[in-house]
């Protein structure tokens, strides 16, 4: 049973409500009012309208030209299409901003870190090492870089550009040592795969199979 205080929108509740019963039902309405008391009035009004659409008689002067509505619909659809293309241009322009984190990019597409890892068939820990520039880019299989590009809906070049960029040391870090700061040493991708404690045996075997191909 869902928690009624969870912030579901009315639209989400109504979408699920209409799927719960093939026809309007007083009994189902009662159940849903108990489950979502915050939407009691809206659920009731929706159910009444649903019943009215089932039983109200047909208007005696229906639309004469059956194609007229189709034309109205097409005009609205084309307008919506044009707006979508313009919005898409804007989004693409914004998405050209350089990648800062694979996880952040994935989140924008709705992937949790685990889901992203599943899509890429590598553990979260390995993704983290790659995005922290702790893996030598030349040792990363091309197929994996392609997978990043496809999954994150970015051009291949964007991914490789991010991987080639040098790890940043935050400007806010105060350095007390007389020696220059050292960035952790980069590792061969296959060494990371061999030693990662979280990787499954199937994944390990799969990725190590690229080692000979790479050489």
């Amino acid at each position: 049973m869902n928690n009624p205080i969870e912030p579901y929108t009315l639209e989400e509740v109504l979408d699920a409500y209409i799927a719960a019963s093939p026809t309007p039902s007083r009994v189902v309405l009662q159940e849903w009012i108990k489950r979502y008391p915050q939407y009691a009035q809206a659920l009731t009004e929706f159910t009444i309208a649903w019943s009215q659409t089932e039983y109200f008689p047909e208007n005696k002067n229906p639309q004469k030209d059956p194609n007229a509505r189709l034309q109205i619909g097409m005009n609205i659809a084309r307008q919506a299409y044009k707006q979508a293309v313009i919005a898409n241009h804007r989004t693409k322009a914004q998405s050209r901003a350089p990648i800062e984190s694979f996880f952040r990019e994935g989140k924008q597409l709705g992937y949790s870190p685990d889901e992203l890892a599943r899509q890429l068939n590598i553990p979260v820990t390995v993704i983290r090492r790659i995005e922290s520039h702790l893996v030598l880019i030349d040792t990363i299989p091309t197929g994996l870089i392609e997978s990043f590009a496809t999954t994150l809906q970015r051009p291949f070049g964007d991914i490789s550009h991010f991987l080639k960029s040098r790890p940043d040391i935050p400007q806010s870090v105060r350095l007390k040592s007389h020696q220059a700061p050292k960035v952790a040493q980069q590792q061969n991708f296959f060494d990371v795969i061999r030693t990662d404690p979280t990787i499954s045996e199937e994944q390990r075997t799969y990725w190590l199979s690229f080692e000979t191909k790479k050489e």
Binding site: T53, E58, P62, A80
Partner: peptide, 27 residues
């Protein structure tokens, strides 16, 4: 079917509104 009981002017308005909402979602 859903709007058949409305008089034709109101039904046309309803149809257009349904389409607007549908395509707003699709796009």
């Amino acid at each position: 079917y859903r709007i058949r009981s409305l008089d034709s002017d109101l039904a046309n308005e309803a149809y257009a509104e349904i389409m607007r909402k549908l395509f707003e979602k699709i796009f």
